[in-house]
Design a protein around this nucleic acid. Structure first.
Length: 574
RNA sequence: AGCCGAAUGGUGUAAUGGUAGCACGACUGAUUCUGGUUCAGUUCGUCAGGGUUCGAGUCCUUGUUCGGCUGCCA
């Protein structure tokens, strides 16, 4: 979208890179990586990281790898590696031939580790998980050395080989780094490097029964891939000394020009949504949503199904910036981004969500006129289409009021409105149900001279309504989505309420008797439109079939009238 | 309590010792055959105290508040 010479996005990471480049650090290379663990679906928070890592590389003439951080087979599945690739691609990023797996390096890592043991920097520890915890000390008290800390190198080597050979049970022993049990940084108190874990790995199958820990595998994977800037989120800041330790200890014989540097930034938080994998999984598994791609989910697949464009998400990620402080971005910014995109690129179309029949008594019975409607006033290049007009039309029920309040510019008894791209009509008579008093239909007259572009077409009429011709309209199902939570910060349990207690009961409203203009026949799944005066909608790619059009509301239009109404309500009730 | 990190309008983010800017939101008004868009404008900010300096959001210092860390998860 931004094809001009936009200034580099300025943030503290770019500043670091700019300095590094100036110093010719890493031989002037910039090489980043996006390293998800394939244990779930990507969400908008990952999109921030993806845009950052790929964006930083591109902006500085570098490259970015996709790397699956698959060191814990008990949680990982191919389903996730596939969805992650699809999502990154859909967002518009390309890793070329640089898709890697940490598991590709298991052999290499094992060799490094043997060297580490030979150098006396690691030892096999027989303590149980619970004992290790006890020996580790607390935040304020130093830990104690493991009784196995001073095993001979020979014994460590032998034990480690036997760990690999499967001679011990899961959890019986671990390999630990020999660092400092009194370190004020708990991550440095002889952290576990390898654990025994019999789980079939989605890539390596049952070849291994020992797996390296993230803290150990990650820096070495970065080094193996010649990464220069290893960008991760804030909670890993305490792990950085260990990251550096691993690089220091292992003579990885990198032909690399330089060494990777870990840089931490604050993860994305969005109002009215949760972002943790655990909670998203819970929403899916307990049926609060229809799946990972439920259009209310903040997952990439959910946003995609909802109708968000990749461009709008990238734009959003550019706008939120990158910093080290925890923050909560207003979801209104995301909504602004998609509106801005679709305002320019979404064809206009008329759809009546809650139809009210209007009979135009002075319009000839049986006559049909095909009127021209521009597809996008912001973009004349998008051309126009023909819209049928006839004696019976439907308008939006809320566009008529029998007893309208002040500033109501729409239809009311004796009042006029313009039907968009057609004629001005006047409400002559209201037909109601004798029993219930419900409004059944309106009888109107039209001004034949008021055709768009016609003689009296210049007459000023305050209100313009969208409409469809009764004889030509197509039935459709429309799903109105709203925020998944009613609370701005569902994660905040300060009020004693679990995030699930803050689910929005009306986050989904299904309308089954909507009528849309006939040009929408056969609309492509996934295509996006502006339903005039209502919002942006997307043809649901899953549930739309040949005999049923299903639309998802991506986002409503900004609605000044709704605000005025709200103001009216509160002022009358006050 | 120990270590680490962060504090700039309602929200997010710039300003690398020199005019506190941009975006979103909110609010006015104008335009409009979408109560959309567009345009014009308004509102609102450097956590606190002390210090260095001709000059401090930025450097020093003390404090306050918030976040992270005691997995054989990542």
């Amino acid at each position: 979208m931004n094809m001009t010479n936009a200034p580099l996005p300025t943030n503290f990471i770019q500043n670091i890179i700019t300095e590094d480049l100036k110093d010719n650090k890493n031989g002037g290379r910039v090489h980043t990586r996006f390293p998800p663990e394939p244990n779930g679906y990507l969400h908008i928070g990952h999109a921030k990281s993806i845009c950052l890592n790929f964006g930083l590389a591109v902006a500085n003439g570098g490259i970015c790898n996709l790397r699956f951080d698959d060191t814990n087979p008990s949680k990982e599945e191919v389903e996730y590696v596939e969805s992650i690739q699809a999502d990154v691609k859909w967002l518009g990023f390309d890793w070329d031939d640089r898709m890697f797996y940490a598991s590709n390096y298991f052999d290499k890592l094992y060799e490094y580790t043997v060297g580490l043991i030979k150098a006396g920097k690691a030892y096999v520890c027989d303590l149980s998980a619970q004992e290790i915890r006890q020996y580790r000390g607390t935040l304020t008290e130093p830990g104690q050395d493991s009784p196995y800390r001073n095993r001979s190198i020979e014994e460590n080597l032998d034990l480690f080989k036997r760990m690999r050979a499967g001679q011990f049970e899961d959890g019986a022993r671990v390999l630990r780094a020999k660092i400092d049990m009194a370190s004020p940084n708990i991550n440095m108190r002889d952290p576990v490097l390898y654990r025994i874990l019999r789980a079939t790995h989605h890539r390596t199958g049952d070849k291994w029964c020992i797996y390296p820990m993230y803290d150990y595998a990650h820096p070495l994977s970065d080094a193996i891939e010649n990464i220069t800037h290893s960008v991760c989120t804030l909670e890993f800041a305490d792990h950085r000394p260990l990251y550096d330790w691993a690089l220091d200890q292992v003579d990885y014989a990198m032909e690399a020009d330089g060494r990777p540097q870990q840089i931490e930034f604050a993860r994305l938080n969005l109002t009215y949504t949760v972002m943790s994998k655990r909670k998203l999984r819970e929403l899916v598994e307990h049926g609060y949503v229809s799946g990972w791609d439920d259009p209310r989910m903040p997952t990439i697949s959910g946003l995609r199904r909802r109708g968000y464009t990749p461009e709008s998400i990238r734009d959003f990620c550019d706008r939120i910036g990158v910093a080290k402080r925890d923050s909560m971005v207003d979801i209104a910014l995301l909504e602004h981004c998609i509106r801005e995109d679709l305002n320019l690129n979404g064809p206009r179309v008329m759809a009546v969500l809650d139809p009210l029949r209007v009979i135009i008594d002075n319009y000839p019975e049986g006559q049909v006129e095909w009127l021209e409607g521009e597809n996008n006033p912001e973009n004349p290049g998008m051309g126009s289409r023909q819209i049928p007009f006839s004696r019976e039309v439907y308008i939006e029920r809320e566009d008529f009021m029998e007893d309208p309040p002040k500033k109501f510019f729409r239809l009311a008894p004796g009042r006029e409105i313009r039907l968009k791209s057609a004629y001005i009509i006047k409400c002559e008579r209201v037909v109601k149900d004798d029993q219930t008093g419900a409004i059944l239909e309106l009888h109107c007259s039209y001004d034949p001279e008021s055709h768009s572009g016609g003689a009296t077409s210049g007459r000023k009429i305050k209100g313009t309504s969208h409409w469809v011709s009764a004889a030509h309209a197509l039935k459709a199902e429309v799903r109105l989505y709203d925020h998944l939570f009613v609370d701005e910060n569902p994660d905040d349990e300060g009020d004693g309420l679990d995030y699930k207690a803050k689910l929005n009961p009306s986050s989904l409203q299904v309308l089954t008797s909507c009528l849309v203009e006939p040009s929408l026949a056969g609309a492509a799944p996934g295509s996006r439109y502006q339903f005039m005066r209502q919002g942006y909608f997307c043809v649901d790619p899953i549930d739309t079939s040949e005999n049923l059009l299903v639309f998802n509301r991506i986002v409503s239009l900004r609605d000044t009238w709704a605000k005025i109404q709200k103001g009216n309500e509160s002022s009358t009730s006050a």
